[in-house]
Design a protein around this nucleic acid. Structure first.
Length: 478
RNA sequence: GGCCCGAUGGCGGAGUGGUGACGCAGCGGACUGCAAAUCCGUGCACCCGAGUUCGAUUCUCGGUCGGGCCUCCA
């Protein structure tokens, strides 16, 4: 199956072909670890995790190298470290751990590499040296600046003409810049701030050079795919591209540039009324990670996404439905004698739905359309169970799981999904109450049965009767 | 001011030059002691104007509205 990806530089969707199918390289700009990351930070995490999974599926798990950097040299980190009177590493390690835990909760696989600026200083200094040697950078007043005049294609990625930018610029230009668009590669640290040695004086790297150097060190330039949020196209990625090319890494820096749309957090009033739910760290206390992941993938990745409280509930409901179908199909299969079980069952409709889902995913990560394929698979699974089609159930079920899990969904057992929030004590209590209620219902003592249901409800448990007995689940947290 | 993107039903959100997916919510019915779930059925939309075309939601132009970037925000 061919993967098509939209490339920001050429502004077109193209079939993806890696330079080397045995070594597919993906780099995504990661977080600055100075605090808990909010939900918007996790949109690229989830989007490019999905891409990572697709690439692994296509080229083999070991063939795909995914680097997502961590910016651990930053003013905000410096400030926080100074406030707490601790080294910057204490701050960055704390929030990197939290970030990784959040990402894992959202079903994101760990990237192959997670390079850090503090561990890339040599490569940064070397790359700046290459740029100076190539006459693409110059030193001035303790700074080293990239000379944008040295790169004829500067502005091509973001579609900006230099003159227009300068004309529209509203910021003061530092006096030591030769050209207003020139940007910092290296600068002196302020007093008391961490600093590193360089031939141009002690100091610290500029933001853009960090990423280029980390790519060079972790993956080697050029790379197949460079990803990040749309807000990074200018100036960050434009600058990365210029540096990479001018440092001597050939005309192509990244074969494909991918950018996810912005996630809007809504107005302040709403954020306030919802408390801290904008932080993934808090959000995942209230909702399963898969539900948050679903919400983030509910729209196409290039479209802007409005994060409101109304996004997550339908996501949870959608997953409830898929898990319910899965659960019901398991009950059905459990009631089928082993002798009647047939492996290698067929289900034409389910295969077509599966193919549609895969085609959607490979068409520039069309997740909304892929979700439709998932629902169609679920419908086929349910109707096969209703029709007592054992082979069909097994086939449709296997396809649903495969399709969903490729996207990072349906990774739990249905029982864990519905009852996951319950501890052992609560489970025992619930089972006892359900047994009591069963007796009451057998006696047609409806008031008593309803009273027990109300008691369960007070425990945040919903009970559902069925011909084969009652099942239960944890109700919504909120 | 410059550049870019978007506008689809109550909400979210795909897609297409020729009966407008899918999900959530709604309505009617079946099932159920009731409820939930499930099943059957059902209502509801392509911002405005002009152009191209046999035909436009889909292409072109203009307008309106919304969003983003131009500041080391993913």
């Amino acid at each position: 199956m061919t993967l098509s990806l939209y490339d920001t530089l050429s502004r077109a969707k193209r079939p993806f072909a890696p330079r080397d199918p045995d070594r597919v390289t993906l780099y995504v700009c990661g977080p600055t670890v100075y605090n808990y990351a909010h939900i918007g930070n996790f949109r690229p995490v989830v989007v490019f995790d999905l891409l990572f999974r697709l690439l692994r599926d296509l080229y083999g798990e070991d063939a795909v190298l995914y680097a997502a950097n961590v910016t651990d040299v930053d003013d905000k980190i410096n400030r926080k470290a100074a406030e707490e009177g601790v080294p910057i590493a204490t701050i960055s390690n704390r929030y990197l751990d939290a970030y990784n835990a959040d990402a894992a909760a959202l079903g994101a696989l760990r990237p192959t590499f997670q390079p850090r600026v503090t561990e890339t200083m040599d490569a940064i200094v070397k790359m700046i040296g290459d740029l100076v040697a190539n006459n693409a950078a110059y030193a001035a007043e303790g700074h080293v600046l990239f000379d944008t005049q040295a790169f004829a294609d500067y502005g091509k990625l973001s579609g900006r003409a230099m003159d227009e930018m300068i004309a529209g610029a509203r910021v003061d230009v530092a006096p030591y810049k030769r050209h207003p668009a020139d940007f910092v590669l290296w600068k002196p640290s302020k007093p008391g701030e961490p600093e590193w040695q360089s031939p141009w004086g002690d100091g610290r790297p500029g933001w853009h050079i960090e990423c280029s150097a980390m790519i060079e060190q972790a993956l080697g330039l050029p790379i197949d795919i460079h990803g990040g949020g749309i807000d990074l196209v200018f100036p960050h990625h434009e600058n990365e591209l210029a540096q990479g090319v001018c440092a001597g890494h050939g005309p192509e820096y990244a074969h494909v540039w991918m950018h996810n749309g912005f996630l809007n957090m809504g107005d302040e009033k709403m954020s306030k009324s919802l408390g801290n739910v904008a932080l993934a760290h808090d959000l995942r206390q209230q909702y399963p990670g898969e539900a948050i992941r679903w919400a983030l993938l509910a729209g196409h990745y290039r479209q802007p996404l409005e994060w409101t409280g109304e996004l997550i509930e339908p996501a949870k409901s959608a997953l409830d439905r898929l898990y319910r179908v899965l659960d019901d199909s398991e009950r059905f299969l459990a009631g089928v004698p082993t002798s009647a079980r047939a492996s290698g069952g067929e289900h034409r409709g389910a295969v077509m739905a599966y193919d549609a889902e895969m085609a959607a995913l490979h068409d520039d990560l069309n997740t909304p359309l892929a979700f439709a394929g998932l629902f169609q698979l679920a419908d086929y699974l349910r109707s096969a169970a209703m029709g007592k089609d054992v082979a069909g159930v097994e086939r449709a079920r296997a396809l649903l799981l495969e399709a969903a899990q490729l996207m990072g969904f349906l990774t739990s057992e249905p029982q864990a999904w519905f009852q996951g929030g319950a501890d052992e004590g609560l489970k025992a209590r619930v089972e006892a109450l359900i047994a009591e209620r069963h007796t009451a219902r057998t006696d047609k003592n409806w008031p008593e049965a309803d009273r027990i249901r109300a008691e369960l409800s007070a425990l945040n448990v919903e009970v559902m009767d069925s011909p084969t007995g009652a099942t239960w689940r944890i109700k919504e947290q909120a």
